[in-house]
Write a protein that binds this DNA or RNA. Structure first.
Lengths: 273, 273
DNA sequence: GATGAAGTGTTCACGCCATGCACAGTAACA
DNA sequence: TGTTACTGTGCATGGCGTGAACACTTCATC
């Protein structure tokens, strides 16, 4: 890795000193994601490009052909530069992925105050839609705990959950619950398209999915996995497209569960893990 | 890809005919995972190895150094054979991964009958432990809907949930809820080791995590993400190792949520999505 | 203004990966 | 005895992430 002083990052210059910590000791991409890099364009020639441009191009590629298409050679090629040139802006592929993922999160929604359940519902739906819009985000391995957008989403939710009186780690667990549900739901939707989407799809794909169904049914029964076989055969699966597959149902279960806990604790005022 | 008639697969020969579906139309690995391949060792020389051996070696490698270590050259090398030779047993890397993942699931636990909540709890805990034991399983992209072990786990849970009276897709959603919680919890645990594990770890790693904490705290505050900053600072995070981080708490919320739904529907007898 | 340090993108290079093809050898069947 | 099907090997390709050397450009300083 060549020593690197990346050029300016997005709007916020982050004037905070906070250099009390060795940036090189942090996981790759963390410092970059939070814009902890020098901004002053110093000696040499002006960089012809920018981290933002690189990430934008990588996003394009990922949108078009999945996360695997966001390779250094491909990104560089589209920008019109050598793959190695990217290392002047980004320390490693991993860092690029961290930045890419953070950008894909975008800004969190503004949540209604005073009704934590409504807020959590909105938050979950928005996140779900985010994942549907950028499915490749599910394929980016998260190697870094928190990035700015990421953290902003979390902050919004936790702020909304505060009035419930839950302890810090409980709120965090709830956040993970909702996050993972959105992720998983989006992943599921991606792998098993809705009937409507199926109708739009080409006949080959339709037939392929039918083949899978038939094949699995046979195998499941011959292995005596009857409960699963039955479920897969349920007419509901062949019916018209439900608004959100099981997403809303699952979300409601989670929120009910939280609500039970919250209202139970309300009377006690002695929360415990 | 060379045409391939793989040698025998694990115990169950799956005599079922069920060849009414074109195996080549299925997603890669599906047919192989369900053992839908010819068994008879026909003309040529006896194969010196077996799919089982290959998968076992791949598992070893993944256990030792993560999923990336389960590459064709590395697996082949440890077996003592050329990378290309593996293609006589496995159609592609992807198929290898499918088989690898299926093997890692292992057999599902026997669940107590008559108490769906106890059953679901046991199931979730066992799955959680499975993921902790084989963290790389979280890194295998699931390209195939159901594999035998996978399906067996699902079957066990759904069988246990049946007495609740939920509809098929609702049970399926519940299963996904629990599965995703176990996955996510295990992933979390992997990324943020318990205090006890930390104490055992080398001082460098400890210091690195402290650096991350300090860095993030500064950044979060300077971006006004105070709720998150507060949560991360909560003394509970520095306290002694909790039995299961937030896993049990989250699990209890999910189950509470399901219970609310189930007991609400019990009186109505008109379940709806 | 000259000079040197720092920063730019390129070229060459390496090692790793998944995978295709041709081949020599081997084992069963005709 | 061939013929045939199947085995593992060798050679090859194109992709990837990344390191090192280099020529070139800009600015800070003398």
């Amino acid at each position: 890795m060549t020593p690197r002083k990346s050029p300016g990052r997005d709007g916020v210059p982050d004037h905070a000193p906070a250099q009390d910590v060795n940036l090189d000791a942090l996981p790759p991409g963390l410092a970059a994601a939070w814009g902890a890099v020098d901004v002053e364009g110093r000696r040499g020639p002006k960089p012809a490009h920018s981290v933002e441009e690189i990430i934008a191009v990588a996003t394009e590629l990922a949108d078009e052909e999945g996360i695997a298409a966001a390779s250094l050679p491909k990104v560089a090629g589209r920008i019109g530069v050598t793959a190695n040139a990217l290392y002047r802006y980004v320390a490693s592929k991993e860092e690029l992925l961290v930045l890419l993922a953070d950008r894909a999160w975008g800004e969190p929604p503004a949540l209604p105050a005073g009704d934590w359940r409504a807020a959590a519902t909105l938050w979950s739906h928005q996140l779900f839609e985010r994942f549907l819009a950028r499915p490749w985000l599910l394929d980016v391995p998260t190697t870094v705990p928190l990035t700015p957008h990421n953290a902003a989403w979390l902050d919004a939710l936790i702020t909304a959950l505060k009035p419930t009186g839950m302890a810090a780690r409980q709120m965090l667990t709830c956040a993970y619950l909702l996050d993972s549900h959105a992720r998983y739901g989006a992943n599921l939707r991606r792998n098993t398209p809705t009937p409507a989407a199926l109708r739009r799809a080409n006949p080959e794909r339709q037939q392929a999915m039918r083949a899978v169904r038939v094949f699995l049914d046979g195998r499941l029964r011959s292995r005596n996995l009857l409960a699963v076989a039955e479920v897969l055969e349920d007419p509901a699966f062949l019916a018209e497209e439900p608004a959100h597959d099981g997403f809303d149902f699952g979300l409601a279960r989670i929120l009910d569960g939280i609500e039970v806990y919250v209202s139970r604790e309300e009377g006690l005022d002695t929360p415990q893990a």
